[in-house]
Design a protein around this nucleic acid. Structure first.
Lengths: 233, 233
DNA sequence: CGACGAAAAACTGTCAACAGTTTTCTCTTT
DNA sequence: AAAGAGAAAACTGTTGACAGTTTTTCGTCG
């Protein structure tokens, strides 16, 4: 991410359908449009004060990103992953995040490591005072920072796409609060491994952090389903 | 990939812009449209006998897939990765393919392993007789089969997307012929590791197979550039 | 002969309208 | 009262046209 990319981003956002793409994506991820339901083009067009053309274009872009699904003559539907797909996504995320950790341990500058430690301290402070409202965004920013600092923009883009898709999983809320202290001890191990310049250890720490989130999700789903349907993996 | 997915694919292809998306993607990957150049909407529309609307929608879908780039008021440009990005893509591919190998070793049925061995034999036969024309598609099918058989459709989709992007790299041709026997000995190790049900070994074998392709690409680029610009990694 | 600038052509962005399909509603029949 | 057929409404798919921007062309000046 350099200055040229920023300019490009601004320019892309200038075009009407570009703005629509972002706005509709935001609306979808915020859950404004009922998941799994059809997206009404006319409604969106009138809502944003445009014609249906740009709306359709934005929706096709979102289709390419994998957030919606197109069924001919029926319309655009918001994708809603089943548990099986959520597990798949978590598995890929695990691998990518693990690799990000490895890269970080190999390449991170001292400045980056200092910022990681800074995030860690803030999160620990928030966890101690049970301040979930400030912990959550911190946690998010921490993970974003790791992905952005690993030095592989392609990996970062792929990872972000996966996280977005995971937002569409119906039972996502089940895994939201996954224990502040538990999560933070994992964070500490991640940062320590990076600071120790140990790629293997960093990879393991980062991967296991996501893998445990996956495990929590599966456990929560099983519990919610009343142990009705045993899940593999 | 099951029957339901096939039906969906057929349905998607039925819509005009869906067909256009595939056709335009094919044209781009085949290099019909000069890489890096602007894509002319009118030209494509007349070529396919439609209006510009569906063409624009198809292009926006391809934008979401990361094959083209949209610059407002200037048009759609075919993305052309620099060496740096190609390396990034190879790195992610390495990780994903490695994981596919690991999954395969854990889950592959005997039928799958038998087919892997079958591919291997055919490729070895083609390599012995220096029959490159039949080796290349076999090699492609072999990799596709691995990705499809690992049991993670999300991983498969991501991997395929990366391969497509790599097709846009200008110097891709440099790495095309990477030594038939070398490549095949790597293939043998991959299959053996899977057949031995050794996930760690399979992961290593699969990852290294892609990593070596990356190394060949970098070496070829350096050579082509006359050792002018030393590349990291 | 090259560079600059204005006019013209080409192209993209957006819209409104029409055709065809799907969905909903209503009325009839059992 | 429930089920089914037919009509009406709603919605998607596609088109052609117009407005605004960019690119090219062409003529002029240094």
């Amino acid at each position: 991410m350099n200055a040229a990319d920023d300019v490009l981003t601004i320019l892309r956002t200038r075009s009407l359908s570009g703005v629509l793409e972002r706005e509709i994506e935001k609306a979808i991820l915020a859950g404004e449009i009922p998941a799994g339901k059809r997206v009404n083009e006319n409604l969106l067009a009138t809502r944003f004060g445009t014609s249906r053309g740009p709306v359709r274009e934005a929706l096709r872009a979102l289709e390419g990103l994998g957030l919606v699904e197109l069924i001919p003559n029926r319309g655009v539907f918001i994708r809603q992953p089943e548990l099986e797909e959520a597990i798949e996504i978590y598995d890929v995320r695990t691998v990518l995040f693990g690799h990000a950790g490895k890269l970080l341990a190999e390449r991170a500058t001292e400045t980056v490591i200092a910022r990681l430690r800074d995030y860690l301290e803030q999160m620990e402070a928030a966890a101690r005072s049970r301040d979930f409202d400030s912990y959550y965004p911190l946690n998010l920013a921490f993970h974003e920072f790791i992905i952005d600092s690993c030095g592989n923009a392609t990996l970062a883009a792929q990872y972000r796409g996966l996280v977005k898709k995971l937002h569409l999983f119906r039972a996502r809320s089940l895994v939201q609060g996954g224990g502040l202290e538990v999560s933070n001890s994992e964070h500490r191990e991640m940062v320590d491994a990076v600071a120790a310049r140990d790629p293997e250890r960093a990879q393991r720490a980062h991967a296991e952090h996501v893998a445990r989130a996956k495990a929590r999700l599966i456990a929560a789903c099983r519990k919610a389903a009343g142990e009705a349907q045993p899940q593999p993996n």
